[in-house]
Design a protein around this nucleic acid. Structure first.
Length: 107
DNA sequence: ACTATGACTCGAG
DNA sequence: CCTCGAGCCATAG
């Protein structure tokens, strides 16, 4: 299983109304670099739109990948539809919506 | 083999 | 809030 698939696998498991970050995913999968997560995610839009890539943000809760979507607003609109408030390209309630893949092991 | 480029991150100023 | 530098590593040319 390539690391892209692992990234997609984790991304698909992010709960609705929550978001995760490149760093936490890279850390959970032991990729050694958050850049790899971002790289893997940008490959998605043209191969599988069932992956909620909009729920993966940078360490500050900012929508750094908005430009890779059809329109920059797509990412924010999807997040707000799921209940995550976004202001000036960043999550308002960071601590309240943050989700770490580590929680998969605690179930 | 080498360089440049990221949906990145963290600390310092 | 913003800028820099360093560390990161798969991919593209």
């Amino acid at each position: 299983m390539s690391y892209h698939e692992k990234v997609y696998d984790i991304t698909r498991q992010i709960p609705v109304g929550k978001f995760s970050t490149y760093g936490s995913i890279a850390d959970y999968l032991h990729l050694g670099s958050a850049r790899m997560v971002g790289w893997a995610l940008k490959q998605i839009d043209f191969m599988d739109d069932s992956i909620p890539a909009h729920r993966v943000l940078n360490s500050k809760g900012e929508l750094s990948g908005r430009n890779a979507f059809p329109t920059p607003e797509t990412m924010q609109v999807r997040l707000e539809m799921e209940g995550i408030k976004v202001k000036n390209w960043k999550v308002v309630d960071y601590d309240g919506c943050y989700w770490h893949p580590q929680e998969l092991d605690e179930l």
